[in-house]
Write a protein that binds this DNA or RNA. Structure first.
Lengths: 121, 121
DNA sequence: TATTGACTTAGACTAGACTCTAAGTGATAA
DNA sequence: TTATCACTTAGAGTCTAGTCTAAGTCAATA
C-alpha cells in the first residue's frame, strides 16, 4: 500500500505518516524497487492503533515508549501492560474532567436559552 | 486577592494568569497602590470558567472570542449562545472519540492480563 | 523527448500555549 | 540601611506535533 493510500485510509497526511516513521512509531516501512514506501498489513495495524491512541491525546513520547518495549520482546510484557494501565487511568481522568466541563457548558447554554443569564461571562 | 493567591486557588502559575490577561481572556485586573494585581470576585469567576473550559480543550482563541462578545454587551447574546453550542458539539464528539479509544485500550489490557496477546503492538 | 505527477530526503518552519529571563520597583526583615 | 522577597514589564525561549520547503528521483503520459 502506498503512502497516499494509507494517508487516505486513515485520514491523515503523508507528512504525518513520514513523521511517525521518523520518530520510530511506525516501520521502518519497506521500500519498493523505486524507493517508495510499501506499507505492510502489520504497518497498517500499528498505524490504526497509534491513530486511535493519538486521538485520545496519548502523547507520541508514551506511544514511542510502548512501541520500543514491544520491539524488545516478550520480557517487556508486564511493563507494557503497566504502561497501558497508566494511560487508561489518565484517559479516564481526562474524560471525567471533560464531562464535567461539558455539564457546565450545557448549564450555561440553558441559562442563555431561558434568558436567566448570571452576572459573569 | 494577589496573583499568588489566585494561582494557588486554581492550581495554575502566575505566568499563566499574566498570560491570560495579556491575551485578553481576563481583566485587565486592577492594580493596588504599588502596582500589584488585585483580583476581584468577578475576575475569579472568569478565571474559574476559563480554567474549566481550557481543561476540556477549548482553545484560547475561541474563549477570547466569547469574552470579547460578552464585553460587547447584550446584543451579542445569541451569537454567544451559538458559539457555546458549537463548542458543546465539539466537546461531545471529543468525549465520544476518547471513550472509544478507552474501550480499545481496556480491551488490549485485557489481552495482556489473560495472556492472549495478538500479533501486533 | 519533454513534461507531469507522485514520490524521496534533510531540514527549516509553524501554531498553540505557555514558561522563562532580565531588569526594575516597592515593602518588609535584620 | 541593606538585603530579601514578591511582584512588575517586555520580550525571548520552549515544547509538542506536526507541516512545509527545496532539491532530487522515477514512471508514465503527450
Amino acid at each position: 500500500m502506498t503512502i497516499k493510500e494509507v494517508a487516505e485510509k486513515f485520514d491523515m497526511t503523508n507528512d504525518t505518516l513520514r513523521y511517525y516513521e521518523k520518530v520510530g512509531l511506525v516501520g521502518p516501512v519497506k521500500k519498493n524497487s523505486s524507493g517508495m514506501r510499501d506499507y505492510s498489513e502489520s504497518d497498517l495495524k500499528r498505524i490504526e492503533f497509534i491513530k486511535c491512541m493519538r486521538s485520545a491525546g496519548i502523547s507520541i513520547e508514551v506511544l514511542k515508549k510502548y512501541v520500543d518495549l514491544y520491539d524488545e520482546g516478550e520480557n517487556t510484557k508486564l511493563e507494557r501492560q503497566h504502561l497501558l494501565e497508566e494511560e487508561q487511568d489518565k484517559l479516564e481522568e481526562k474524560i471525567k474532567t471533560m464531562t464535567e466541563a461539558l455539564d457546565k457548558l450545557k448549564y450555561k447554554i440553558e441559562l442563555y436559552k431561558t434568558n436567566k443569564l448570571d452576572e459573569y461571562l
